[in-house]
Amino acid sequence: MTTPPVRPTTQIQTVVDLDPRVARALRSELAEVADRAVLTIIDEVPSYAGALSGRMGEVIRNAVQLALGGFLTLATRPDSSAPKAPAIEGAYQLGRGEARSGRTVEALLAAYRVGARVAWRDMGDAAVGAGIEPGQLARFAELVFAYIDELSAASVAGHTDELESSGRVRQRNLDRLARALLSGAPADAVNAAAERADWEPRDALTAVVLPESQVSHALTALDPRTLQPTDEVPGLPEGHASLLVPTAASATARRTMLRALRGTDAVVGPTVPWLEAAGSHRRTLRCVALGLEGLVDSDEHLAALVLGADAEARADLRARVLAPLADLRPSTAEKLTDTLRSWLLHHGRRDAVAEELFVHAQTVRYRVGQLREIYGDRLEDPAFVLDATLALA
Rank of each mutant, 00 (worst) to 15 (best):
A207M: 02
A192L: 15
R168G: 10
H281C: 04
R77V: 00
T337R: 11
R225E: 15
A91K: 13
T264L: 09
T3S: 02
D387N: 08
P83T: 12
V16E: 06
Y147C: 04
L258G: 04
A111W: 12
I60N: 07
R55N: 10
P273W: 05
D43H: 15
L205V: 06
L392K: 05
E164W: 01
M1H: 02
P20D: 11
P229F: 03
A303E: 07
R372V: 13
P324I: 07
E300W: 01
S165G: 15
T40Q: 15
M257V: 02
G158T: 12
T10Q: 00
C287S: 02
R225F: 07
P211T: 06
A393Y: 03
R100H: 11
T160E: 15
L275Y: 02
A289V: 05
E133I: 06
R27W: 13
A197N: 13
A127W: 09
S80W: 01
L94A: 05
A25P: 09
G376K: 08
A141K: 14
A313D: 01
R176I: 04
A241G: 03
S80A: 15
R170E: 00
A260M: 06
A31Y: 09
R139H: 12
A23R: 12
V385N: 10
P186W: 05
T14N: 08
R329N: 12
S342Q: 15
N191H: 10
W343H: 14
A393M: 03
R61H: 14
D265Q: 03
T337N: 07
E58Y: 07
T332W: 11
A241H: 06
R172H: 09
L137E: 13
T339S: 13
T104D: 13
Y366M: 08
A23E: 07
L386I: 00
A85C: 00
